[in-house]
Amino acid sequence: MSEYILKTQALTKRYGSFAANDSISLTIRKGAIYGLVGRNGAGKTTFMKMICSLSKPTSGSFELCGETYPQLRRARTKIGNLIEAPGIYAGMSAYDNLKAKAKLYGTDDRKKIEAILETVGLANTGSKHAGSFSLGMRQRLGIGLALIGEPEVLVLDEPINGLDPTGVAEIRETIKRLNTERGMTVLISSHILSELAKLSTDYGFIDKGCLIKELSEQQLLDDCAEFVRLNVNDRQAAQGVLRRLGITEITDENGQLHLTDCMERTDEITEALVKGGIRVYEIAKQGIDLESYYLELIGKE
């Protein structure tokens, strides 16, 4: 069995001459939480729709749960999705909404449906119509609908859009729980990158329909590595002092020294520099967050 649950090869979706997705080739490991990062209109939803068989690729192919597009007979039942706003029957209760979809799979067992309601925190909604639910409750019901049929892959498109901080935290915890307890692979998109950074184990950066970078959490941490920014009167002499301390990863950028792999040694560095007769104007820890990293990638200020 492949270690990847999804592999796309030059997946392309065109609307006339406009390429919403242009030759996207990415891989998602089993059990990963894959964060698809991109601004509005970057092509995230289009990509997800193709994976969920809601939209047909113009060219390219993909392999999902061991089956290759378009032969996705079993794979179709192994994927649950929440694309854009959750699709719910407003006049039905949360239970009935789940029961309706469960009928599609022939799994409308009361206990299973109640277990999903429990998972998404809607067990106490009774016969209340979904139309009167808050935005957060609707989103959770949308995730609940995606969980019908016990999918192996969960595709969530902007699941935290418009939610208050409590709602965001609830959704985050639900996704984490599904991933750790059930080993569910999650493909999630959001433009709230700080939230994505709290969840994802892998990242795909997408812009103007193209995948511009794909990397793991560790690679991202390395890429976004924090550094110590040092502003001194004599950079040449300071570098000598730092080398004697065993700090070798020093770069001189815009009149400042950037030091990596010495985050916990700022006190020691300051002391050594002062003892070496160097004036320290500023010493500060600095790093870039996911948002800055993404903006750097797409070349925006």
Binding site: C52, G87, A146
Partner: peptide, 10 residues
């Protein structure tokens, strides 16, 4: 209501 997105792919 968008329910089609829950079903049509399956």
């Amino acid at each position: 209501n968008g329910y089609i997105k829950n079903v049509a792919g399956s």
